[in-house]
Design a protein around this nucleic acid. Sequence first.
DNA 1: GTGGCCCGTTCCACGATGTGGAACACTGAC
DNA 2: GTCAGTGTTCCACATCGTGGAACGGGCCAC
Lengths: 258, 258
Amino acid sequence: MWNTDPMSTVQSVERAFAVLRCLGSGPAGVSEIAERTGLPKSTVSRLLGTLVDLDAVTQLDPNGAYGLGELILDLSASATPGRNLVGTARPVLEQLVEQLGESAGLGVLDGRDVYYLDQVNGDREVQVRDWTGERVEAHVGSAGLVLLAFAPASVLARFLGGPLTSFTEQTIADPVRLNQRLDETRRAGFVWCFEEYSEGLNSVGAPISNSSGRVVAAISVHGPSYRFPANGASAAVAAAVVDAANRITERLSGRLDH
Amino acid sequence: MWNTDPMSTVQSVERAFAVLRCLGSGPAGVSEIAERTGLPKSTVSRLLGTLVDLDAVTQLDPNGAYGLGELILDLSASATPGRNLVGTARPVLEQLVEQLGESAGLGVLDGRDVYYLDQVNGDREVQVRDWTGERVEAHVGSAGLVLLAFAPASVLARFLGGPLTSFTEQTIADPVRLNQRLDETRRAGFVWCFEEYSEGLNSVGAPISNSSGRVVAAISVHGPSYRFPANGASAAVAAAVVDAANRITERLSGRLDH
DNA sequence: GTGGCCCGTTCCACGATGTGGAACACTGAC
DNA sequence: GTCAGTGTTCCACATCGTGGAACGGGCCAC
């Protein structure tokens, strides 16, 4: 490894990528990777364990070969120009806001929080403030609930084993009740939140999947509880949000571009 | 981060992937990534620098946003089932061997060496032995020369700045002459080696590109110098090898599968 | 023009983390 | 059963990654 950079680099990261590059040629075992990279077997084994944890690598059979994992495909979907999440979702959010009259946002799961990547605001005088760049605990918002509902079982188990903060009297902070709710969310494909994060704030969220079929983001529409959802309109609103999410999903997988 | 693994993982690698996942949502700057990952800006900057070095990340503008780099696309081409290099190349190598009667191999650049991933052997009594799983310094074989010729300028500069071993009287171990030779190789799209690694061993190599257009491997055909290439046959043999390499290239990009 | 705020980059003392040799468990061939 | 190969795990230790702080640059308001 010839490092001509004036600034030092992180050796462990370089080594991990050396391992990944080996796997880029096809499945390989610990010994072959060790031979090719010049690293000790124990180091390779530990790096592979880390990469498996991250889903960047998958173990093809126990005590056997490793191959590249789903995360690489996930990331590559975004590395393709024109296919990044924020840019793809933006026009769809704009249409949704025009259709429903309320603000719409885009969020991703980040640790125990939803991180809001983008938001398109309605033009009413009373509206939900912009959350772009902010984070909220995942269990108190519709985007977060959707992301939890479709998260891998290990992620969800960890989340439910951690602290659940109550923000209002409506917050569901009991892990058993929350887990049941996530079951329902998975079945319905969307979820409504009624004043669980903040008094007077309602929202509905639906999942966005990438080209591998993994839920990687969620959109939500939120408004003041005194008018959102309008009486009898919650099913239609939810359907519009699910439809918008599905459109983003299809754009991410490239089907609508052909 | 909830690590339920009995064995520890490599924190630096996890952090690097946390950064990559942020960029999976769209371009972002150091401060945003720092906010989202909870890491200090200096750590994020250094990780990004490392990832840029590795081509996993690209800096979209100086003092600005970063995005995912080509390496992710490179890797994803192999993560897609049925698209790994060795499996894709194998049948083409078999046809080539049947056509030319000599052994054909597949190699990748690995440090200063070619690493031979696969080889299909001819059925003659006198043949070149199998090099699968072995490595040879890149400048003494046709596969290695092709890989050097099409390597990024920084990789080539480093290589030429390092020691060049002579194996035979024919070996070109002078960096200036070698560099000229690589120019010619780039123009021709293939290269012949005559007894430069071992007396009595000739070979011809051509590059394989992935779907991003990067040269990621090379194939070579090698035989005993007393019969390979046959008199007046070098151009036809080279053309067959280039044609086979191009077929592999097209299969890797998925065009022939449609 | 100046100052404040933001951005990303670089430095360096130090301790936290990654290391790699060795032991271990498993598998398959003879 | 033995041996040679595989991949996994452990742990003392030293090397490497860290993060606060300084820095330079750009932008905007006054």
